[in-house]
Amino acid sequence: MLDDRARMEAAKKEKVEQILAEFQLQEEDLKKVMRRMQKEMDRGLRLETHEEASVKMLPTYVRSTPEGSEVGDFLSLDLGGTNFRVMLVKVGEGEEGQWSVKTKHQMYSIPEDAMTGTAEMLFDYISECISDFLDKHQMKHKKLPLGFTFSFPVRHEDIDKGILLNWTKGFKASGAEGNNVVGLLRDAIKRRGDFEMDVVAMVNDTVATMISCYYEDHQCEVGMIVGTGCNACYMEEMQNVELVEGDEGRMCVNTEWGAFGDSGELDEFLLEYDRLVDESSANPGQQLYEKLIGGKYMGELVRLVLLRLVDENLLFHGEASEQLRTRGAFETRFVSQVESDTGDRKQIYNILSTLGLRPSTTDCDIVRRACESVSTRAAHMCSAGLAGVINRMRESRSEDVMRITVGVDGSVYKLHPSFKERFHASVRRLTPSCEITFIESEEGSGRGAALVSAVACKKACMLGQ
């Protein structure tokens, strides 16, 4: 009897593995994704193909990295998701002549009506938060230079001027797309009239992360975010950046690689679950690469896999709870928690219980395998993109072996128990001629924006502006 049951459990697990095998990517698959990513990057950089390229390769006008001589107080704003952060950054000489960066910050959550109302409502709310922060720190009387981390696709015309191309991540505030974001912020500050600010720089969160990590390690020339969304930036040779005049030196390019796949480059790798996630998203047909990796989508992918296993009578005796059938019910943090389970399955059992399920031991094991399959594919897909960037940098610099540091931020990278190990191992397999160091950014977005502002202020002083 026991043997029969054991055989049935083994057969069930084997069927589960057959279904989950769809998520496995072979090294040849990853090399294919990497080569296609490089081709799209090239198209994004070139003037004649930029418009139709899915990977936009947006110039950021960040050319210099901090040298350690900029000092002063800077205000930093960070808008990239449902939370908005205001930070005071003091850049100065530390002990023994070292450079020191001290920060104080406060988080504000953005109400739904500000995210989806008008641009005026959104930026009025942001300036209200700045006003509140300055009151708390008794700094209303000071006109501070301000660095703005704005983590949406922007076409820069200068370091302090950028046109919002399109909202992502659930934002829909009308009247912002096609307009200068810094102008919208300046107008809102003017409307309030109770404080003055000098907006000197606007950067993407990947750029802010790279600059913040450069402060720790001067070989950091790539910034990457794996959180709600997924994106990367890197220092490109100016001669390859056709959208900006000049051939000397390097400029940081914001790849906006989340949109890779929007022209069909990933079609052969998309599964039924991916198509369902895409169809029910706020932007169907867009940001397809990001939807395979980002935390906004990972939990939902797992939920759809679990429903398939229920329908195949391989999980929960073929019956799903009402909660499990509800879109968004299986949160991405559950994926991390399930994979963090120590082996007694308590954590998995508790999560499934909150979803109205009474799982068996085998159910718990199957749910864990589903989570591992989805998150491992995410790590491997992400590795193909980064390997594409790094191999490109090595080739354009004609280096036999390139040493490089990548600064990384984002909740999936930082909080998932195995993502970074799987990701690092896969990147290294795909970049055999590179020695890569990964560092995690601390308060990256805010500190990085302030350091970019410090560079901009120093330049302005040198130019006598």
Rank of each mutant, 00 (worst) to 15 (best):
D3A: 11
D4L: 13
R5V: 09
R5A: 09
R7P: 10
R7M: 14
E9R: 13
K12H: 09
K13P: 12
K15G: 13
V16Y: 12
V16M: 15
E22H: 06
Q24W: 12
Q24D: 13
E28W: 05
K32T: 14
K32D: 14
V33T: 09
V33L: 11
M34G: 08
K39T: 08
E40I: 10
D42F: 13
D42Q: 08
G44I: 03
R46H: 14
L47Q: 09
E48S: 06
K56T: 03
M57E: 12
P59T: 01
Y61V: 04
R63N: 15
R63A: 11
T65W: 15
P66A: 14
P66Q: 12
S69F: 12
E70F: 13
D73K: 09
L77K: 03
D78L: 05
T82S: 09
N83T: 03
N83H: 02
F84P: 00
M87R: 06
M87G: 06
M87C: 11
L88Y: 10
L88S: 05
L88H: 15
V89C: 15
V91Y: 07
V91D: 02
E93T: 07
E93G: 11
G94K: 14
Q98S: 09
Q98A: 12
W99K: 07
S100N: 11
S100C: 07
V101D: 08
K102C: 05
K102L: 13
M107R: 06
M107A: 08
Y108Q: 03
I110D: 00
P111W: 02
D113W: 11
A114Q: 07
G117L: 04
A119Y: 01
L122D: 00
F123M: 00
Y125N: 03
C129S: 04
D132Q: 02
D132T: 04
L134S: 02
K140L: 05
H141F: 05
T149R: 03
F152V: 03
P153L: 01
V154M: 03
R155T: 00
R155M: 02
I159G: 04
G162W: 01
L164W: 00
L164Q: 01
T168S: 02
G170N: 04
K172V: 03
A173P: 07
A173Y: 00
A173K: 01
A173I: 00
G175I: 02
A176I: 05
A176W: 00
A176T: 05
E177R: 03
V181K: 06
V181A: 00
G183L: 04
L184H: 00
L184N: 01
A188N: 00
D194H: 03
D198F: 07
V200K: 00
A201L: 03
D205V: 05
T206A: 01
A208L: 00
Y214T: 15
E216C: 00
D217S: 15
Q219W: 10
C220F: 03
E221C: 05
E221G: 14
G223E: 03
G223P: 05
T228H: 03
G229P: 01
G229Q: 01
A232M: 11
C233M: 03
Y234H: 02
M235Y: 06
E236K: 04
M238C: 15
N240V: 13
E245Q: 14
E245I: 09
E245A: 15
G246F: 06
E248V: 08
G249S: 13
R250S: 11
V253H: 01
N254T: 01
N254I: 06
W257E: 01
G258F: 14
F260C: 09
G261L: 02
D262K: 09
S263Q: 15
S263K: 10
D267E: 11
D267F: 14
F269V: 08
D274I: 00
L276P: 07
V277R: 03
D278H: 10
A282I: 11
P284S: 14
Q287R: 12
I293H: 07
I293T: 01
K296D: 12
Y297R: 04
L301A: 14
L301K: 08
V302M: 14
L304N: 08
L304I: 02
L306Y: 07
L307M: 05
L309M: 05
V310H: 15
E312T: 13
L314K: 08
F316H: 15
G318N: 05
A320W: 12
S321D: 09
S321N: 10
Q323E: 13
T326M: 10
G328M: 13
R333L: 14
R333C: 12
F334Y: 07
V335M: 14
V335I: 13
Q337H: 12
Q337D: 13
V338I: 14
T342H: 06
R345Q: 07
R345D: 15
R345M: 10
Q347Y: 12
I348R: 11
Y349R: 09
N350I: 12
I351W: 07
S353I: 08
T354E: 12
G356V: 08
L357V: 05
T362P: 11
T362G: 08
I366Y: 07
V367I: 08
A370T: 06
E372A: 09
E372T: 08
E372N: 09
S375F: 08
T376I: 11
A378P: 06
M381N: 07
M381Q: 05
C382M: 03
G385D: 03
G385T: 01
L386G: 01
V389R: 03
I390F: 12
M393Q: 10
M393H: 11
E395L: 12
S396H: 12
S398C: 06
D400Y: 11
V401E: 13
R403F: 10
R403L: 13
R403W: 12
I404S: 07
I404L: 08
D409R: 03
G410I: 02
V412E: 05
Y413Q: 00
K414M: 15
P417L: 11
S418E: 09
F423S: 05
F423V: 14
H424D: 04
S426P: 05
S426W: 11
S426M: 12
R428E: 12
R428M: 08
R428V: 10
R428P: 11
P432W: 07
P432N: 06
S433C: 15
S433G: 10
C434H: 02
T437R: 10
T437E: 14
F438E: 00
S441Q: 05
S441H: 10
E442S: 13
E443D: 08
E443F: 13
L451I: 08
C457K: 11
C461F: 05
L463M: 08
L463E: 14
Q465N: 14
